[in-house]
Amino acid sequence: MGKYFQSAYRFGTLGGVLSVVSFLALAWFYGDPTNLNLVFGYIIVPIAIFLTIKFYKDYNNDGYLSFSEGMTVGFVAYMILGLISGLGIWLILSLSPDLFELILDTKLKVLADNKELILGQVGEKSFETTLMSVQAMTPFDVGLNDTLWKIIPGLFFSIIISIILRRNSN
């Protein structure tokens, strides 16, 4: 079983750590690093999954890869990446309430600045629900959101990369 997950653990952990580091770096350069960190996630997630599946195929499975093997090691990689990233961001925001307040204030300001546009698109009730949701946001919510936005695209990237790298016989 270890041969299936050796590269998944390695690249999932590396991707998760890079995501946390990018969050810290973006927080230092910008006030609200959450949106840019999601964009960074769309770069790091497919790279981590590709490297995981490619290394598994080349170094653990003699150049062969079934679709299910690719999906399995890809799943482990993006789950580890997402969990490390989300837990790291939650920990950072829990230890730095000033950063969390800055993120919360930025999100509330975006809502206030775009109130008329949002009201025209979704209506008063949806706007008020969104406003209450943002006001009730916690550091855990930010970490959970980041985790989900790593895992969901990870599933699709795993499918595509597993199909591309699949090789069942000579």
Rank of each mutant, 00 (worst) to 15 (best):
M137P: 06
M137C: 02
A48Q: 06
K3W: 00
V39Q: 06
L14S: 09
F11I: 01
E128V: 14
Q135D: 01
K57W: 07
D146F: 14
L65Q: 05
T130L: 12
L87D: 09
A8Q: 00
I49F: 00
F157P: 01
F23R: 05
K150W: 04
V122G: 01
D141H: 14
L119D: 04
V142W: 00
T34K: 11
P33V: 00
L81Q: 11
V122I: 12
M137L: 14
V21S: 10
M1T: 06
R10E: 12
L155E: 05
E116Q: 11
Y4Q: 09
S85P: 10
M132W: 13
I152Q: 02
E69G: 04
E124S: 11
R166L: 00
F29N: 09
D113V: 05
G120F: 02
F100H: 06
N170E: 14
I43E: 01
W28M: 14
D98M: 13
P139N: 10
L83P: 01
T147N: 08
I164A: 03
F75S: 12
S96E: 14
I43P: 07
D32F: 09
G12I: 02
E69Q: 15
Y4D: 06
G16S: 10
M132K: 15
E128I: 14
L165N: 02
L24K: 06
K3A: 08
L95K: 01
S96K: 13
G31Q: 10
F127M: 00
I43D: 07
N61P: 08
L144Q: 10
W28P: 07
L14W: 04
E101P: 11
F40D: 00
I92E: 13
I159N: 08
I44W: 07
P33T: 05
L165F: 08
T106M: 09
E124W: 00
L108F: 08
V73T: 15
Y59I: 06
L165I: 02
G143M: 04
S96V: 13
L83N: 10
L102T: 15
K57I: 04
M71V: 13
A136P: 07
T52V: 04
L38I: 14
D105I: 08
F75H: 03
A25S: 09
G154Q: 07
L51P: 07
G154V: 05
E116Y: 03
D58F: 06
V76L: 09
S19N: 12
E124M: 11
L155S: 07
F11Q: 06
T72I: 12
S126K: 15
E128H: 13
F55E: 15
N37V: 11
N168D: 13
G41V: 04
L38K: 12
S158Y: 01
V134C: 07
E116I: 03
F100V: 03
N170L: 13
L26A: 11
L51E: 05
T106D: 14
A112Q: 12
I53Q: 06
A77V: 01
G143P: 06
A112G: 05
N35E: 14
G120M: 11
N168L: 13
P97V: 04
V21Q: 02
I159A: 00
A48T: 02
I118V: 08
Y64N: 12
N35L: 15
S68N: 12
G31H: 00
F40W: 10
I152N: 08
S162P: 09
N35Q: 14
L87A: 15
L91V: 13
M137N: 13
A27C: 09
L36T: 10
I118F: 07
Y59T: 12
V20F: 06
L81M: 12
N114E: 07
F5Q: 03
G31N: 11
G16V: 01
